[in-house]
Design a protein around this nucleic acid. Sequence first.
DNA 1: AACCTTCTATGATAATTATCAGAGAGTAAT
DNA 2: ATTACTCTCTGATAATTATCATAGAAGGTT
Lengths: 229, 229
Amino acid sequence: MGNTTCTCEYCQLKNIFFAHVKSDELTNICDLKVERSYSKGESIIQEGDPITEFVYMKKGLVKLSKASIDGKDQIISFSKPFDFVSLLSVFSSTQYKYSVTAIEQTTVCILQLDVVRKYAEENALFAMDMMSNISQMTDKIILDNLEIKRKHLKGRIAHVLLYFSDYIYKKDEFELPISRREIAEYIGMTTENVIRTLSEFRKDEIIKIFGKNILISDKKRLKSISEFG
Amino acid sequence: MGNTTCTCEYCQLKNIFFAHVKSDELTNICDLKVERSYSKGESIIQEGDPITEFVYMKKGLVKLSKASIDGKDQIISFSKPFDFVSLLSVFSSTQYKYSVTAIEQTTVCILQLDVVRKYAEENALFAMDMMSNISQMTDKIILDNLEIKRKHLKGRIAHVLLYFSDYIYKKDEFELPISRREIAEYIGMTTENVIRTLSEFRKDEIIKIFGKNILISDKKRLKSISEFG
DNA sequence: AACCTTCTATGATAATTATCAGAGAGTAAT
DNA sequence: ATTACTCTCTGATAATTATCATAGAAGGTT
């Protein structure tokens, strides 16, 4: 984990989070902001941590997960640049109810929560922007989980592959940022069956597998499996 | 569906939604507000409807559901008094992505969305309260769905029974507001297996069933099934 | 290098869940 | 009263998914 600084003036995030924050205020925010980097596997937020910061993604990819009673982890969702990662609980609880872990080299920007609160209370348009952002993210999580829920094993695996291919990497060939076990934790199936299904897709020449590298060679079929299988 | 009016001054909702709205403004809001009643089964919001109103629960119980490609409905969650029902999408989309239907005699309060927006933009504390409310609700939906996901059929049914018993009705004996099929749509299982499992619980003397009326006679066991079964 | 752990992989078997079929009860409409 | 629903219920069987066992590959540590 390392800290660096940057000038927010030229950051893409500005237009998303701080569109309604005046230029001089932004400079102020910029001074108060901390940037942190995490390498793959590092923990960014631990379930139970007090919520004192407002964290958003600048670069990389993270997973949001929660430990269940029986010790197993469940993955809630993934977050990419311009997403909040402290979106759940941040305005409704004092402690995180889930963990955030880097699954790729990741950089986040951090503001103290009371600073964000102060700006939100003074600048309602900023508060509205934030609300809209949080709303969009939680919508996505809820509707994505609903999609997964209605599918069978094969459809769920297809869904995950398409998620990374179309939504995250926008390429047909990519390196899976998570293990087979983590896919299982995301879709609510066993690791063995995830592996088995991927092998099956390989045998059926829908995908090619080189370790963690996946090449989707028949996307049409994969989409059809995702929708109806 | 019927319209009535009430004085907001004495409404319990005031303390939840409008804690930071001044008394004279509240009178103003009260005048702009419409109250609507729906009987069991009536549709309150239809998937695809344009979002022009801000709807919150005053009395009763509703289900939030979404039709999937194959025509089947999936139930996302239930909302009870003091919940927003237009919580998803309301600040992030122009159209509803889910339907809301009364599953009990229900009364909702309705404000035009632009009125709410106006107040939120003028009164940041009100905006923050709203954000906190929406956040709490979406948190609950996400975490509840996660709980259901990690459980097997029996655990899921136990979970649903405890949800209505402990969270909605706060009684061990209650009338199930939804059909077996709707339970299936909520937990992602088939209607037959929902019925079968309820019968099993009855045979094991965990619950008593009189049509839609349920009496939980061994809550300890039901809780254990919910957690580990 | 030797050791340990996790990950990927596959097969056999057991458990869980879905599907199909049939039937009675309740409800609403004509 | 009859028809046409949907809902509840049960059994038999098929399909899906989990569990258990085993093993090689990969990565990290001492």
